Simulated assay, not measured.
Amino acid sequence: MSKTPLVLALLTLIGPLTATIPDASAQGRVRGHAVVHGVDGGRAAATRAAGRGERGAYVRGRNVLSDGQGNAAGRSGAYAVGADGGTAQRQGSFYRNADGSAGRQGSASIDGAKGGGLNTSGSIARNANGDVSGSRSTSATGANGNTYNGSTTVQNGVVTHTRACTNAAGEAIACRGR
């Protein structure tokens, strides 16, 4: 299926939505959603939202495209900034194929206004036979300088997790939790 007509129609519909995002001095929120149906059963959809208020501002969006044959794919993302200056963002994507295979990947990060932060990313996939594999890695730093680095993988039904923690001087310390 040619996705070009669907994508062009979708862009035509959502173009005005992006122009309605409030400027820096505005207070409030705006949302928009558009769907285009193709003659072959495919569909393209887009959602956008943005807002600003006393506690900060955000913008987020999502696109999904399907072809009417059981295949679909999409992407999403968001960004927020707090009134105190901290920021957070995330992004992700997914796919699903007619043969039963599917997958998802995503990442997120946080930068605290008073120090500290977090980065995480991962993916998981299922093949047409139903076998699942994936991984996630996370690193975090507290405002006091302590760090956590962890990794989780799943392969052939076996889950493995490793982690390490350090203090602000880089010395190994015990990780709390499980």
Score class of each variant (00 low, 15 high):
residue 149 N to C: 13
residue 135 S to D: 08
residue 166 T to N: 12
residue 160 T to G: 10
residue 152 T to S: 10
residue 144 N to R: 04
residue 135 S to P: 07
residue 149 N to G: 12
residue 131 D to Y: 09
residue 131 D to R: 13
residue 123 S to K: 04
residue 159 V to C: 05
residue 164 A to D: 13
residue 147 T to S: 13
residue 172 A to W: 11
residue 165 C to H: 07
residue 123 S to Y: 05
residue 125 A to E: 03
residue 129 N to C: 14
residue 107 S to F: 10
residue 122 G to W: 00
residue 134 G to C: 00
residue 159 V to E: 05
residue 125 A to W: 01
residue 163 R to C: 14
residue 131 D to L: 11
residue 163 R to Q: 15
residue 169 A to F: 09
residue 121 S to R: 12
residue 141 T to H: 03
residue 138 T to P: 06
residue 148 Y to G: 08
residue 126 R to Y: 04
residue 128 A to F: 08
residue 170 G to S: 04
residue 107 S to N: 12
residue 164 A to H: 15
residue 125 A to H: 04
residue 172 A to S: 11
residue 140 A to W: 05
residue 130 G to T: 03
residue 123 S to F: 03
residue 173 I to P: 07
residue 115 G to A: 07
residue 109 S to I: 08
residue 130 G to D: 02
residue 107 S to R: 12
residue 129 N to Y: 15
residue 112 G to E: 00
residue 143 A to M: 04
residue 151 S to D: 14
residue 151 S to K: 15
residue 161 H to G: 13
residue 152 T to G: 07
residue 142 G to I: 02
residue 132 V to K: 01
residue 118 L to G: 05
residue 156 N to D: 07
residue 172 A to M: 09
residue 153 T to N: 07
residue 125 A to F: 02
residue 143 A to R: 08
residue 142 G to S: 07
residue 171 E to N: 12
residue 133 S to E: 04
residue 114 K to V: 06
residue 149 N to M: 11
residue 162 T to K: 14
residue 131 D to E: 14
residue 167 N to E: 03
residue 132 V to E: 00
residue 123 S to C: 02
residue 152 T to F: 06
residue 155 Q to A: 02
residue 158 V to Q: 05
residue 151 S to T: 14
residue 171 E to A: 11
residue 145 G to T: 05
residue 150 G to R: 08
residue 119 N to H: 15
residue 160 T to R: 12
residue 162 T to Y: 13
residue 165 C to D: 06
residue 155 Q to R: 05
residue 145 G to N: 06
residue 127 N to G: 04
residue 130 G to V: 02
residue 131 D to N: 11
residue 134 G to F: 00
residue 111 D to W: 12
residue 153 T to P: 04
residue 119 N to G: 15
residue 146 N to R: 12
residue 137 S to I: 09
residue 114 K to S: 08
residue 158 V to C: 03
residue 124 I to L: 07
residue 135 S to R: 11
residue 159 V to I: 12
residue 107 S to C: 11
residue 165 C to K: 10
residue 155 Q to S: 05
residue 109 S to T: 09
residue 128 A to I: 08
residue 145 G to K: 07
residue 114 K to M: 06
residue 132 V to T: 01
residue 146 N to E: 15
residue 122 G to Q: 01
residue 124 I to K: 07
residue 158 V to I: 09
residue 149 N to E: 14
residue 141 T to N: 02
residue 139 S to M: 09
residue 157 G to D: 02
residue 144 N to K: 07
residue 131 D to Q: 12
residue 165 C to T: 08
residue 139 S to A: 11
residue 157 G to Q: 03
residue 164 A to Q: 15
residue 165 C to Y: 07
residue 134 G to E: 00
residue 112 G to K: 01
residue 173 I to E: 10
residue 149 N to Y: 12
residue 144 N to T: 05
residue 129 N to A: 14
residue 117 G to L: 03
residue 170 G to L: 04
residue 126 R to M: 06
residue 145 G to M: 05
residue 139 S to C: 08
residue 151 S to P: 13
residue 145 G to L: 04
residue 107 S to K: 12
residue 114 K to P: 04
residue 135 S to C: 07
residue 172 A to Q: 13
residue 108 A to G: 09
residue 135 S to I: 05
